[in-house]
């Protein structure tokens, strides 16, 4: 019965070590912001952080997480300047269309800006290329990341 540290809170869950983290988050703990998309770590809709690093929860067995800190989209601190900048850029540029992939997009964008505060187009394209958007909002996502980077500068 692994104990997981999720958004700063310990959660004991009765699952096999093989169970993907996303199943635990959505089905057992009701944390539904991370979405199920492809199930094979190809689309990025399920992106969460493990020790601050963006990972695909659909393909990550909980046994491998151990006691490392998990952050879901619910756990993004609004007071965090990077989170704040990304959220307001997303609103300012009206990035979202259907919205299904957007929790993953926001998680990936925040992670990118934390390591690369002023990314080039090329850095945005490769960092975000693991996050699919069937509505094709890619150009607005790229612009919004530049916008957020400008706000933070």
């Amino acid at each position: 019965m692994p104990t997981l540290m999720i958004n700063g809170q310990p959660h004991s869950v009765d699952v096999d070590a093989d169970t993907p983290l996303l199943w635990v988050l959505r089905d057992i703990l009701g944390l539904n912001a991370a979405k199920f998309g492809c199930g094979i770590a190809q689309c990025g809709a399920c992106t969460v952080y493990v020790d601050g690093k963006a990972v695909r929860a659909c393909n990550l067995p909980v046994g491998l997480v151990g006691t490392r800190a998990i952050t879901t989209p619910e756990g993004l601190e609004s007071a965090d300047p990077v989170v704040q900048a990304v959220k307001s850029a997303w609103v300012a540029l009206d990035v979202v269309q259907c919205g299904y992939c957007q929790p993953g997009q926001v998680m990936a964008a925040v992670a990118l800006l934390r390591t690369t505060p002023n990314p080039t187009d090329e850095q945005i394209d490769s960092a975000m290329s693991g996050n699919m958007c069937r509505c094709g909002t890619y150009m607005r996502i790229r612009a919004a990341i530049h916008h957020a980077a400008g706000e933070l500068a």
Binding site: L60, L64, S126, G130
Partner: peptide, 18 residues
């Protein structure tokens, strides 16, 4: 590679998931 592989393996190959 960027779209199909980097999701797990990352652009620098150091691995995203584990």
């Amino acid at each position: 590679y960027a779209s199909a592989c980097a999701g797990c393996h990352l652009p620098d190959g150091t691995g995203r998931q584990s």
